[in-house]
Amino acid sequence: MSQIQPVFFYFFAGVAIAFSLLVIFKKNPVSSAFSLVMVFFAFAGIYALLQAHLVATLQILVYTGAIMVLFVFVLMLLNIKNTPIDWKGTSLIRIGTTVGVSAMLAVFFIVSFKKANFVPASGLFSPERVDEMGGNTQVLAELMFSEYILPFELTSVLLLGAIVGTVAIAMRKNKRGES
């Protein structure tokens, strides 16, 4: 089994974390959106390292290509001004607690993962097996329409529900039903 190259993994993970922080701290919403694009690219890199090339490609096509462009469009249409984060309202204690607790959580996770000496249970589809069966795309396509048909179809139910709701929330007033 081909191991993940640690150097590349740490590179992509570092990029992902750094740009995630930028998403939050950038003042300009458009730069936040583009930082998110970088995060998605880093994720795609990690997926590719895990031999999931199809997922990596889809990640770039769907997330960076479609969703983020939509984000930027919405930002453009809403014409949001640069709103600097107002730190005055938040007390130092609160910021301290937040940072402290998240750092503790991070340390806790890292230590327990290190100590775990953990051999991940191998799933059904190791990279070799996937290659044997015709590669990522074929395996994914076949599984999606047989074994995983239920979650696949349920996703469309989820989207349908979301669309209906969005129409209800976003529709102009006094169009109908509001006599």
Binding site: P151, L154, G165, T166, A168, K173
Partner: peptide, 26 residues
């Protein structure tokens, strides 16, 4: 009986309820 289905069903329910909570838009 499957964590993926569980999560998607959970989200179907939650999303609809978020929208219902905000139904009085004004």
């Amino acid at each position: 009986l499957d964590l993926i289905v569980l999560f998607i069903a959970f989200e179907i329910m939650s999303l609809c309820v978020y929208l219902l909570v905000g139904f009085r838009r004004s």
